[in-house]
């Protein structure tokens, strides 16, 4: 038996909205540790890893490990039927072929349940090695989303270069070129607006903007985004979900010709 109750049900809807454009079908892995998903996008260029810890839920019960295969698009459609302030409860039997989403309005006057059929999905779990990154940038997630969107009007790829002076996002295209530089700054009153650059050595890598724009769909989940880079390694774009976990996206850099 799996049962998980989330007062802020809207959180799961935001999570689905931040994954469904990249991944069609995936397994949610339920265990006593929590509720997790790891999946590659259809072109196998990027990897999503999201994890919600069991202690972040108001109630969490998972008698035995369970892998729930779902169409993310269909699950997102169901979660769209949830009110913004609803409490969400997910339930699934150990050997069942469906998962139930129950939505309770804050005043308890409306209770609805939606059942989603599960699918068998073959997926290999990848091990992600711990890495000491050359540079890690923490910045407002909305600023990162804006930069990726703005640069997409000019080019298809972005060069992200971290130096001690700041982080520069550059692109070129048929109509011209663009650069946005963000400098580190702290703001005691508004920590969500600060930019923190932790650099061991300068690093510059090129990425497809299409993917970064998909990752930025996670912006509503967190005020800040953390971008970690090392030479010739995938970038990690991580959104921390307060008191619960994170969603992290891995994207391989473009190879120079």
């Amino acid at each position: 038996m799996f049962e998980a109750r989330l007062t802020q049900g809207v959180l799961l809807r935001k999570l689905l909205d931040s994954m469904k454009d990249l991944v069609q079908d995936a397994n949610f892995d339920c265990s006593s540790t929590g509720f997790a998903l790891q999946a590659m996008d259809s072109s196998h260029v990027s990897l999503i890893h999201m994890q919600l810890r069991s202690d972040g839920f108001d109630h969490f019960r998972c008698d035995r490990n369970l892998s729930m295969g779902v169409s993310l698009n269909n699950m997102a459609k169901i979660l769209k039927c949830m009110g913004n302030d609803d409490v969400l409860t997910m339930k699934a039997e150990d050997q069942g072929d469906s998962v139930t989403f129950m939505f309770e309005s804050a005043n308890q006057e409306r209770i609805s349940d939606f059942e989603l059929k599960l699918m068998d999905i073959d997926s290999e779990q990848l091990g992600i090695p711990d890495t000491d990154y050359s540079a890690t940038v923490k910045m407002p997630s909305a600023e990162f989303a804006r930069i990726c969107k703005d640069l997409s009007t000019i080019g298809d790829t972005v060069l992200i270069a971290v130096t001690k002076d700041g982080v520069r996002f550059s692109t070129t295209g048929d109509i011209g070129s663009a650069n946005v530089t963000v400098r580190s700054h702290s703001n005691v009153d508004k920590p969500e607006e600060q930019v923190v650059i932790d650099m061991q050595e300068p690093v510059a890598l090129t990425f497809a903007l299409r993917y970064l724009n998909s990752f930025a769909k996670a912006t509503p989940l967190s005020n800040q985004v953390m971008i970690s880079m090392s030479k010739e390694l995938p970038v990690v774009v991580q959104y921390r979900i307060e008191d619960m976990g994170h969603i992290s996206y891995y994207l391989a850099p473009k190879i120079e010709d």
């Binding site: 072109s43 990897l47 779990q125 990848l126 992600i128 090695p129 497809a208 391989a252 850099p253």
Partner: peptide
């Protein structure tokens, strides 16, 4: 995808 290694090649299969 052109100019890009598959992401799985950076990780190991569990």
């Amino acid at each position: 995808l052109k100019g890009q290694r598959p992401i799985s090649s950076f990780f190991f299969v569990k």
